[in-house]
């Protein structure tokens, strides 16, 4: 199987941290990584929607991933980053504790997720990449950014 391994497909992922776990999103889905900045709160939205920012003239919604997955209190520090991701033509900023690595991982290293990893429902996960010295949780952004909850929220309001 060695020769097969040589030609295996690899994907480039951005690695970020939430509390103690490391997560990955594909580079192709990431537009930019921003420092923490002033966020304008948008009233009557779910708790994890922190508001909107001015991203070079484009008003971009920002959500707190930790709050999204109920992983603990928000605690913004100097290493806190906003990763701007795009799913189809929807751009959203994700607040993460740190983002500082870009690595290549072979696709065949990604295993289907167990029921729950680090407290996150597997519906939001694409899989888990087991690398030599680290474990990367790959997010399924389509699901994470499904705005069903936002829409549900608005139907309650009206």
């Amino acid at each position: 199987m060695l020769e097969h391994k040589d030609i295996v497909e690899e994907i480039k992922v951005i690695v970020f941290r939430l509390v103690d776990e490391e997560y990955g999103v594909e580079v192709s889905q990431v537009r930019s990584i921003e420092h923490m900045q002033k966020i304008t709160r948008v009233p009557r939205t779910p708790e994890f929607v922190k508001g909107v920012i001015n991203l070079r003239g484009i008003v971009t919604p920002v959500i707190d991933l930790k709050a999204r997955f109920a992983l603990g209190e928000e605690n913004y520090t100097d290493s806190t980053r906003i990763i701007i991701v795009a799913v189809e033509d929807m751009e959203v900023g994700l607040i993460v504790d740190a983002a500082n690595d870009v690595i290549d991982i072979p696709v065949n290293k990604i295993e289907p997720p167990p029921a729950v990893v680090g407290g996150i429902n597997k519906a939001y996960l694409r899989g888990v990449a087991k690398l030599a010295d680290r474990l990367l949780i790959m997010l399924n952004l389509d699901k994470v950014l499904s705005n069903e909850e936002i829409q549900a929220m608005s139907s309650i309001e009206r």
Binding site: P61, M90, N147, S154
Partner: peptide, 10 residues
């Protein structure tokens, strides 16, 4: 407000 929030804010 961006597509993510469109239609959802009172």
């Amino acid at each position: 407000l961006g597509k993510y929030l469109t239609g959802g804010v009172f």
